[in-house]
Design a protein around this nucleic acid. Structure first.
Length: 605
RNA sequence: GCGCCCGUAGCUCAGUUGGAUAGAGCAUCAGGCUUCGAACCUGAGGGUCGGGGGUUCGAAUCCCUCCGGGCGCGCCA
């Protein structure tokens, strides 16, 4: 288990376990590992003495029991006794418990642990009564900056932006849910040499079209061709950059027109994608322009940066170039202009000092890992990074085509994001029309939107982000296995049951304990549901939303098994109300989990 | 050349930071709808975890080495 849970577990030895449910954001310890740890810890201390206080209990889910503890194997060597004997001694010393029904030694020294059904039911009831579903709020909330999406000015968003946008949105939601103060930063690429080129081309052509970014994209390509082929134009473009950077009013006016066109384009896409990014979150490269001079000066005075071949560079130990020479981080170019290293350094300093961030996340592709390693290292050496602050490059793999080669926008082969989403909607609509032909037109359209967008996002989030991603329609829109539609279908079936039973779906439960755990299918579902808060806490540390996807998939699978084995509506009254409560709790977990991934759920489909 | 990442079933992927016989989905085969939604469920076959060493009671996981693939490595961002 994660560090937070381990800490909470040891607290429970010192203080009597609080059984009361706490409301309004105070921690509700749901995860059975916490209570199991307390019992096992007591037994281990009884066997080992003080050394047992710090021993790793290694409690986790098991195929052979509800949970297993591997602590005996780990500590056997310290005691110079056979692991099986140590395990038996620990089992012997387990205190009487309302948590565990049985514990036995197995294999070379594993301790298999089963929970009492009444205990699982009680934990579920506590979770049901909690509007936060047992998700603990961080005891020491961090201010966390999440830098993600980062489209470019005057260019259409394409598949290459998809991962950063979706991953960043999900991580921001999750960290926010865990009680941290999240500051979203959309590092819009709105500054640099391309804009001199664009504005110069605008002036040549008399206009830059209207506010349609698709036109602007063509405009961009035309300007680029001219820039590459016409040295005189290239010179004018470079001079225009200087005018832009020095704040020349007519130049700025044209630049703002580009900004307006771009923001209306990306706003529409964010809305369609259900990504929580607004204009207020835009902190583009231009924002840092006035500070670049000062940043470079500061680095020079600190002895970190020095002149090299006419540029100003930071040289860091451990970074070596192709020729074996020290590898520079170029903060100021030969021509006096500032590169993206300077901008990133200024942005980082701003986030640490003005925004007072404890944690800064960069949701940016893996190819830039060396760049960020150098930027972070420089910031530390400059003394900008407070003790304990974390700078993390949340790296992800490249988007590849079917041929396994990287999709590159400059090659002209990149699929535009809006075209991609349009196709996702069309394909989802065809499936919904076929499967849910009895529903009305408007209803089918709404479902197709939820399913289509959700499928695309989930396909991206469900695989480990560090791996390369092969862009593949059938992968995105296959509705089987670990996919959004599978989870949505489980949710829709629950909602159907709840509608028939007249149960309100969204609100926390009130009243006395109602859940009973009798059958194996109920137990399996209960154990998955109770994993939810701990999984979220873990994702908050590892920044791997695919672990949340995995957990939701296991929960939905367990529900399908339960659905198959356990009739709800026709069961006898006590069983019926218990199973209804289990259904409703499952629905809330699925809906909340998907919400944290930025994905909507349909009430029917 | 140096550095980082990846390599797991025919395909697409997990593997809870070192634990039991390496798990899912797709595909294949065999079953299950007069009962809450079959976009579902149950079962079967399918593996030298890229190769080889090492550490360990115990390795897909940690270390070394080799092979294969990708990316980065001075003025684009």
């Amino acid at each position: 288990m994660d560090r937070a849970c381990a800490r909470a577990a040891s607290d429970r030895i010192a203080h009597p376990p609080a059984r009361a449910i706490h409301w309004a954001g105070t921690p509700v310890m749901i995860d059975p590992v916490l209570d199991i740890s307390a019992s096992v810890r007591a037994a281990v201390v009884a066997v080992l003495g003080a050394a047992g206080e710090s021993a790793d209990l290694a409690i986790h889910r098991s195929e052979h029991a509800d949970y297993q503890a591997d602590v005996a194997l780990a500590v056997a060597r310290l005691l110079k006794r056979p692991p099986k004997e140590v395990a038996a001694a620990i089992v012997e010393r387990l205190p009487p418990s309302d948590v565990l029904s049985d514990a036995r030694v197995s294999g070379p020294g594993f301790i298999n642990l089963n929970c009492r059904p009444e205990y699982l039911a009680m934990q579920l009831d506590r979770m049901r009564a909690d509007s936060r579903l047992g998700i603990e709020s961080a005891l020491h909330p961090d201010t966390t900056v999440v830098d993600f999406s980062s489209p470019n000015l005057a260019k259409e968003m394409h598949v290459g932006h998809l991962r950063s946008t979706i991953l960043g949105d999900s991580l921001a939601r999750i960290l926010d849910c865990l009680g941290h103060r999240v500051i979203r930063q959309n590092h819009l690429g709105d500054w640099g040499t391309p804009f001199g080129m664009l504005i110069e081309h605008m002036l040549d052509e008399g206009a830059a079209g209207n506010n349609d970014v698709r036109e602007l994209s063509a405009f961009y390509r035309a300007a680029r061709l001219k820039f590459d082929g016409d040295p005189q134009f290239a010179d004018r473009a470079r001079r225009r950059v200087v005018l832009l950077q020095s704040g020349d009013p007519p130049t700025l006016e044209h630049w703002r027109r580009l900004i307006d066109a771009t923001t209306s384009h990306i706003d529409a896409l964010y809305k369609q994608l259900h990504v929580a990014l607004s204009r207020d979150d835009i902190a583009g490269e231009s924002l840092y322009n006035p500070r670049l001079e000062g940043i470079v000066g500061e680095l020079e005075r600190a002895g970190l940066a020095r002149s090299s071949d006419g540029a100003v560079c930071v040289f860091l130990p451990g970074f070596v170039s192709r020729e074996g020479q020290p590898l520079p981080l170029i903060v100021r170019k030969q021509d006096g202009g500032f590169g993206y290293a300077a901008t990133d350094l200024a942005a980082l300093k701003h986030r640490l000092q003005a925004l007072r961030a404890h944690r800064v996340l960069y949701v940016v592709g893996a190819p830039q890992s060396q760049h960020f390693a150098m930027v972070f290292d420089t910031a530390r050496r400059a003394g900008w990074v407070p003790e304990g602050a974390r700078l993390e490059h949340v790296a992800f793999g490249s988007v590849l085509g079917q041929d396994g080669k990287e999709l590159k926008s400059r090659a002209g082969g990149a699929v535009s994001l809006s075209a991609l989403l349009d196709e996702a909607l069309l394909r989802a609509r065809a499936i919904v029309d076929e499967r849910s032909s009895s529903l009305e037109e408007g209803e089918r359209a709404r479902i197709a939107e939820i399913v289509g967008i959700g499928a695309v996002k989930y396909a991206d989030l469900a695989s480990d982000r560090i791996r390369d991603y092969v862009f593949n329609w059938s992968r995105m829109l296959t509705f089987e296995g670990n996919t959004a539609p599978y989870l949505m279908y489980a949710y829709a079936r629950i909602r159907s049951i709840l509608r028939k039973a007249g149960v309100d779906a969204a609100t926390p439960a009130s009243g006395p304990a109602a859940v009973r755990i009798d059958s194996p299918a109920e137990r399996a579902l209960a154990l998955e549901i109770l994993q939810f808060p701990g999984t979220l806490a873990r994702v908050g540390e590892t920044l791997q939303p695919h672990r949340l996807c995995q957990q939701l998939f296991r929960t939905a699978t367990a529900f399908s098994g339960f659905y198959d084995a356990c009739p709800v509506l026709n069961a006898e009254p006590a069983v019926r109300s218990s199973r209804l409560a289990l259904c409703k709790l499952t629905a809330r977990v699925l809906a909340r989990g998907l919400e944290l991934l930025g994905i909507d759920v349909p009430e029917s489909m």
